[in-house]
Structure formats: C-alpha cells, structure tokens
C-alpha cells in the first residue's frame, strides 16, 4: 500500500501579522513556522495505519514551499513517514488552492497512491479546498472533515464531523483521499532517536515549475486586520489589582450575579 500525506508549514499564530510589500499576504520577517495542526493529525493517522498493517504501507510526506518547509517534512519523517518530497516553490504563498492542488495532483498522478491524507484546512489561509480539489483532479473517492478512521477488508470507514456532535458515517473504496479534522487522534511527539533516524530518510526535491503552470482561480486583492469594535475595556497590570477592577466591572454590569 502506498500512502501520501500532504502537509503545509504555517506561521505560529501567536504573533502580530503585518502585510508584505505587495499587501496581499503577511510579511515573514521574524515569524516562526510549524506544521499545520490538521496536517499533524493526517501524518499521525497514516503512521498508525502503517503500524496496524505491520509496517507494510510506504508513507510519502509532501510539502510545497520555500527551503524552510524541509523542517516540517523532517518533523513528519520523525513521526514515522518513510520518505519526503519537497516541491520547492518560493512563490507558493501567492498560489491559490487550485494551483496548489494542481501541483499535488501532477506529482501524484503517476505514483498510484492508494490513500492520501491531508488536513481539512490550513491555519493560515484556511480555504479548506486543496484536498478535495486534488481528489477531483486525480479521480479519487474523497471524504472531508474526518474525526474517526478504520481500515478493514480493503475499505475505509470514516466518521465525518457534521454539527452539534452529530457525525456522518461513510465507507470509501480505495484509492481515496481523506481530509482530517482535529481530534482524529492524539499526534505523537517525535522521540530523539526517531528525529536522528529521520535525518537519514530519503528527501526528494522537485521544482514546482516541472509540475505544470496553472494560473490562479481566485485573486487576493488585499490583506488587512479586522475592524476592531473598540468599545471594550482593556485591563492590564498587577494580578490582584486587575482582579479587583474586573470584579468591580462585573458587579456593575451584571447585577444579581451570585458570588460577587
């Protein structure tokens, strides 16, 4: 069985974002980058399946972007993927979901993967399209937002998260692509020996320009912070003093609260 996991490197979100000179995406200066959260669940699920099938599946992990994304590929290798593919593209941040999905599909088409895992969305762009578009381009069965996965008798059985805790149960034939929701599993931390082992694993670099030249289907015109409501009170300072002020505000604004 051949498995592909598509992962994205995204910025740590606990920071202040400023527009880049083009004004269409964020400036990367001083940002820290990490593995997209939903993609971490995708890697973990693939590795669990490999373990369940006594190591038989071969897991390729793919990421698109500039040189820095190699670190993210290495993290997935340290979690248990077998080989990495870096689609090198310094312009990846400008590409829309259609262009990214086309790169993935053009890479994967001849490789005959049985199963592809992706996250259901990225934390930075958050369009939630790439996995499904790639599945359509490759003609694969596809289910999105999965929170449970079983593989038995050559079929995938998944639970899709709907709303209010209700789930949809879906069975898919291979080849298939699944997009993973957080909560699908608890991803492992790579151990030090596995981080060392990952350094020796195969890592192939492919130039994005060799995988077709699709134009964008949507265009970002502007990147900006949300309009602030501005009416809120901001409290800052020493804990006991601030707690005192907050208790005062609550007592005034919410009369009849017990415990105040």
């Amino acid at each position: 069985m051949k498995i592909l996991v598509c992962v994205k490197q995204v910025p740590d979100l606990e920071t202040t974002f400023k527009p880049n000179p083009e004004g269409t995406w964020f400036d990367e200066t001083d940002l820290a980058f990490q593995l997209n959260d939903c993609d971490e669940y995708a890697v973990e699920e693939a590795v669990r399946l490999k373990e369940k099938l006594a190591g038989a599946p071969d897991i390729t992990v793919l990421s698109i972007g500039p040189r820095r994304v190699v670190e993210t590929i290495k993290r997935a290798l340290a979690m248990g993927a077998d080989r990495g593919v870096h689609i090198e593209d310094a312009e990846a941040y400008r590409k829309d979901p259609w262009q990214i999905a086309s790169l993935i599909a053009n890479f994967a088409r001849e490789k005959k993967f049985d199963l592809i895992f992706t996250g259901m969305q990225s934390q930075d762009r958050g369009s939630g399209q790439v996995g499904v578009l790639a599945a359509e381009l490759l003609g694969l069965a596809c289910a999105t937002t999965i929170v449970a996965f079983e593989f038995t008798g050559g079929l995938c059985r998944v639970r899709r998260e709907l709303a209010g805790g209700v789930k949809g149960v879906v069975e898919l034939k291979l080849p298939a692509l699944l997009t993973c929701q957080s909560g699908l599993n608890v991803p492992r931390y790579p151990t030090l020996p596995n981080i060392m082992k990952a350094r020796k694993k195969e890592l192939l670099t492919v130039g994005a320009e060799t995988l077709g030249k699709e134009g964008p289907a949507v265009v970002t015109e502007k990147f900006y912070p949300p309009a602030r409501k501005g009416a809120g009170v901001v409290l800052e300072g020493e804990a006991a003093e601030t707690a005192d002020k907050l208790a005062g505000i609550l007592r005034e604004k919410i009369p009849g609260l017990r415990g105040l």
Binding site: L13, F17, R125, G215, A217, T220, F223, Y224
Partner: peptide, 17 residues
C-alpha cells in the same frame, strides 16, 4: 471578505474565473 490566520487577519478576494 474572508478571514485568515485563525481569524486574526482578513483577505479581500475576487474570483479570477
């Protein structure tokens, strides 16, 4: 207008098709 970066920022987007 769509949100991005977990709702911290916004993008203004137009279809190219």
């Amino acid at each position: 207008e769509v949100g991005c970066l977990n709702g911290k920022m916004r993008r203004l987007v137009a279809p190219a098709t």
